[in-house]
Design a protein around this nucleic acid. Sequence first.
DNA 1: TAGGCCATCTGGTCCT
DNA 2: AGGACCAGATGGCCTA
Length: 140
Amino acid sequence: MKSDVPLSPTDSSDGCQGQSKGCLLGCMPGRVEGSTKRRLAANARERRRMQGLNTAFDSLRKVVPQWGEDKKLSKYETLQMALSYIMALNRILTEAERYRDGGDWSASQQYEQLQQDCQGYLGLASPNDCDHFISQTFSH
DNA sequence: TAGGCCATCTGGTCCT
DNA sequence: AGGACCAGATGGCCTA
């Protein structure tokens, strides 16, 4: 992972990545100094913006179910999982209200419904995965 | 070593 | 004019 953030105009990664990129510093001394400063400031803002975005992704990862603690979800996987998770929770709420209004709903029925939601929305094959999902859901 | 994922730079566009 | 947002390009790191 590339974590070394260029901090100053003298840094080697100041925008001179490869010859095809515009080399803002040193190529046209003097005349472009103003625009160079603006570009570097824009780069810094963009870095901060992306860091904010990544912080938001980390927050999302914390509330989204994840099987196996070993591998961190990618951004794409995090979004897909969040979508499935929200849909599953929405389904659970809808079903719970329906059963509540229609009479009694035993604990075993609730659990079966949860397992069906798991398999349907999250594409899980194994009941163990469903149990894991359910325990995570109610731990939040 | 190829492919996936990511951070960063950059230029364009839109908005205030 | 300057900031926010976006998408493309690029290169580094990691894993199968």
